[in-house]
Design a protein around this nucleic acid. Structure first.
Lengths: 143, 143
DNA sequence: ATGTCAAATGGAAATGATTTTCAATAACGA
DNA sequence: TCGTTATTGAAAATCATTTCCATTTGACAT
């Protein structure tokens, strides 16, 4: 029930954005939505059940999804692109656990005041920012 | 006078960190110190006066400098590594102008309060963060 | 000065993630 | 059902970064 409904919502979103509904796209979204951490293309493909997309297809779709604000693309020091599904299209950030790798969204953005201070200091008008947070998740910090 | 003094300071810093003083290292540092924006390895090499380093040498040194906190490595969506010289080893951020590309350091970090709010929301203990700021520099926002 | 030796360099080759090409396939409106 | 057009994916290309390794060089001791 829930599952079927989720799929319907997803397909409607795809169509609404002008996408055709293909099993590849569905599979990519399904994997990202159920992942608790950012995934590389390789990881996305290996986690697909029942359907295996080609590499270029996954890259292409992720790029398109990113343009729609559905996924965020993260490039760490290892130079590998990783992708997180964004449940909200509102401005938000991700915190990732340095121990277990799990990442969660932090909705909203508490940076307003800080950005104003930095604008004053630098003389720049700050129009865009990207914040990556790392730390310990509730479980990992517990021990 | 000033120039000679700057060189002496730089060489002393290199020796102090256990590096040998080579013309390549001096050239890399000189280019980064006098750049008003992050540079790729290709750009660093093409800006060297009088001395041209090999590509692997530049990468190796930049990595070492980054480990010492002398440079910050930025990887943008174009997947190319760019490097900025950090005049201070204290925590700071960089704002880059989206129009002209110029980047400046914003010393200090006004995020303390914001990070506490995000810790409360997420349940994570935030230990590290990376903030990239973009906007318009004083000149470019003027028109 | 000179010798010694580990650190440093750099050309060439390797690596490997991402992108391009293009022919085949499939979604979807008519 | 059919035709149009987006989408897919295997293979090849791209290209920034890294590795290899033979050669050079900085720094210290003699």
């Amino acid at each position: 029930m829930v599952h079927r409904n989720t799929n319907a919502v997803r397909d409607a979103a795809l169509r609404g954005a002008g996408f055709r509904v293909t099993p590849q796209r569905q599979a990519i979204i399904r994997v990202l939505e159920t992942s608790d951490r950012p995934l590389s293309v390789e990881e996305i493909i290996s986690r697909m059940k029942g359907y295996r997309s080609g590499v270029p297809t996954v890259y292409r779709n992720l790029q398109q999804f990113a343009e729609h604000g559905w996924v965020e693309t993260l490039v760490g020091p290892d130079q590998i692109m990783r992708f997180v599904w964004c449940s909200t299209s509102k401005h938000h950030h991700h915190v990732q656990c340095e121990q277990c790798g799990r990442a969660v969204e932090v909705e909203g953005c508490a940076l307003k005041r800080a950005l104003e201070a930095m604008e004053a200091k630098s003389g720049f008008r700050i129009t865009r920012h990207q914040l990556q947070l790392f730390g310990l998740c509730p479980e990992c910090k517990g021990e």
